[in-house]
C-alpha cells in the first residue's frame, strides 16, 4: 500500500477511534453517539455498496459509447437533460454512486451540461425520498420545491457545462 496516498484516511480513522475510546472512558456523550452512528452507517453502507458498485461496473462494460453519445451527448439537446433527470430520480444511492457514474458518463461521451443536471438532480429528485417528503411535509411543499428547483438546477448545470466545456474540463476518477 502506498503510504503517502493513504495517510489522510488512516490518520482520520485512527484519530476518530481514539476519540471514541476516550469518550467511552470519560462518558462524553456526543463522542459515544458518534461511534455508534459510525457503526450503523458502516453497516448500512455494507448493505448498499456491493450491489450498487456491481451495477456501476455492469453499466460501464455493457452500455455502449454510441448510445450515451446519442442520447446524452452534445447533440442530444433537451432530450439529454430529460434523461439526466429521469436517471437521477430512479438511480439509488447518494453522491457515492452519482459521482463515479458522472465520471463514466463523461468517458462515454455525455455532455457536461447533462452530467451536471444529473448530479444536481440526484441530490433532490429521488423518488423514494420524495415519497418521504410528501408524507411528512405535504403535496404543496413538494410541488413548489420541484417547480422551482428543477428548472433552476438544470439552468445552472447548463451554465456549468457551457463554461467548463470551453476549458476541456475532465471529471476525475475519484482517487
Amino acid at each position: 500500500m502506498n503510504w503517502r496516498k493513504h495517510y489522510k484516511p488512516v490518520i482520520t480513522f485512527t484519530g476518530f477511534v481514539l476519540f471514541v475510546l476516550l469518550s467511552y472512558l470519560t462518558g462524553f456523550q456526543p463522542g459515544i453517539r458518534s461511534g455508534k452512528s459510525f457503526i450503523s452507517f458502516t453497516r448500512e453502507m455494507m448493505g448498499l455498496l456491493p450491489p450498487a458498485f456491481i451495477l456501476i461496473g455492469l453499466f460501464e462494460v455493457w452500455v455502449k459509447r454510441e448510445i450515451i453519445e446519442k442520447h446524452m451527448g452534445e447533440e442530444s439537446g433537451i432530450k439529454g437533460y430529460l434523461w439526466a433527470i429521469l436517471l437521477a430520480g430512479t438511480v439509488v444511492g447518494g453522491l457515492y454512486v452519482a459521482l463515479p457514474l458522472c465520471y463514466i458518463l463523461q468517458k462515454k461521451g455525455a455532455s457536461l451540461g447533462v452530467i451536471f443536471t444529473y448530479l444536481n438532480a440526484a441530490a433532490i429528485c429521488k423518488i423514494p425520498m420524495t415519497l418521504f417528503e410528501l408524507s411528512f411535509l405535504g403535496l404543496r411543499f413538494t410541488f413548489v420545491r420541484y417547480l422551482v428547483s428543477l428548472p433552476l438546477l438544470t439552468f445552472v448545470a447548463f451554465l456549468f457545462g457551457k463554461y467548463l466545456g470551453e476549458s476541456e474540463y475532465k471529471i476525475m476518477d475519484g482517487s
Binding site: 484516511p9 480513522f13 453502507m45 456491481i54 456501476i56 455492469l58 460501464e60 463515479p100
Partner: peptide, 18 residues
C-alpha cells in the same frame, strides 16, 4: 465488469472513510 466495480470502489475507499 466486476473488476471495474472493485477498481471504482477501491479508488473511493479512502474518501468513504473520511
Amino acid at each position: 465488469a466486476l473488476k471495474r466495480s472493485w477498481k471504482t470502489f477501491s479508488r473511493m475507499l479512502s474518501m468513504f472513510i473520511i
